[in-house]
Design a binder for these strands. Structure first.
Lengths: 141, 141
DNA sequence: TGAAATTGGAACGAATCAGTCCAATTTAAG
DNA sequence: CTTAAATTGGACTGATTCGTTCCAATTTCA
């Protein structure tokens, strides 16, 4: 019921990368310095984000990372699924993972897709643009 | 992002216990036989459910378990929180768990309570009565 | 052509979770 | 009143997954 730390870090990293959208490429170590996360951890996060086609990487000297899509077209659900795979609260919801053994007798099973969709909808409603902008709450502190 | 197996088993166990609401007490081994779950696992689940005041236990010969409240007053959120503790997707949402270290710089943090409430609301909308009734989907199969 | 900078993947350690077992308590019967 | 059986409650062990770190392959600029 808790998000993995990697997924949490991925959201923070993507929010930091979105602020460099117009400025071209950003290195992973620079993102680590801005977010305050450990360097190697950011490396692992950007690897998965690149594999999920959320970031575009350019190797070599002067290379770096940049968003593969506009920030408005990336949602929280995309980032979470990039790290943790498909959103599925239980095993029986996860498409073809029949490892429960008592699915036909399970009275609860028909209700899980409803809860699952409610969760995914809540995540898909928040685009990256809302996370990238610095909230007014911080300037007051 | 996935529910723990114990929480999943707890929901199934509570649904089975709700069907014995009028019939008095039910033993844990009997619930295991009805649900098809391993006996020791059900024992561990009912222990936590009893500690959370969702089940009432009567020890001794002829004893057993029964719902502490009416089935309509128990929701999915109650059962999940009984096993996994408070529902919190990230550490910074969990009341007083300041282990992140970059909370004041985190632009994402103000948005997590919104997602968290959406998830909890989806779980709290499903009472145990809807899970206990045998769904028509099963008779058709 | 050489060297520096960066990403990508692989390996190690730790923590939480799932599962199992045994002991303490209590009621019913003899 | 004593004995015995049945049940819950808590503690232990093993395993899977997650988090972290390090090293090698690739590419561009000077």
């Amino acid at each position: 019921m808790r998000l993995s730390n990697l997924a949490d870090y991925a959201v923070v990293t993507m929010a930091a990368a979105a602020q460099h959208c117009g400025g071209g490429r950003v290195s992973a170590s620079e993102l680590a310095a801005e977010t305050g996360l450990p360097g190697p951890t950011v490396q692992k996060v950007v690897s998965k984000l690149t594999a999920a086609s959320l970031l575009r990487s350019v190797r070599g000297a002067g290379g770096g990372l940049q968003l593969a899509r506009p920030a408005a077209a990336i949602t929280l659900a995309d980032i979470v699924e990039a790290i943790e795979g498909p959103i599925a609260l239980t095993a029986c919801v996860d498409s073809n993972a029949h490892e429960c053994g008592l699915e036909q007798n399970c009275a609860v099973r028909p209700h899980w897709p409803i809860v699952n969709q409610a969760l995914r909808g809540a995540l898909a409603d928040i685009p990256l643009t809302r996370l990238a902008q610095t909230t007014p709450h911080q300037e007051l502190v």
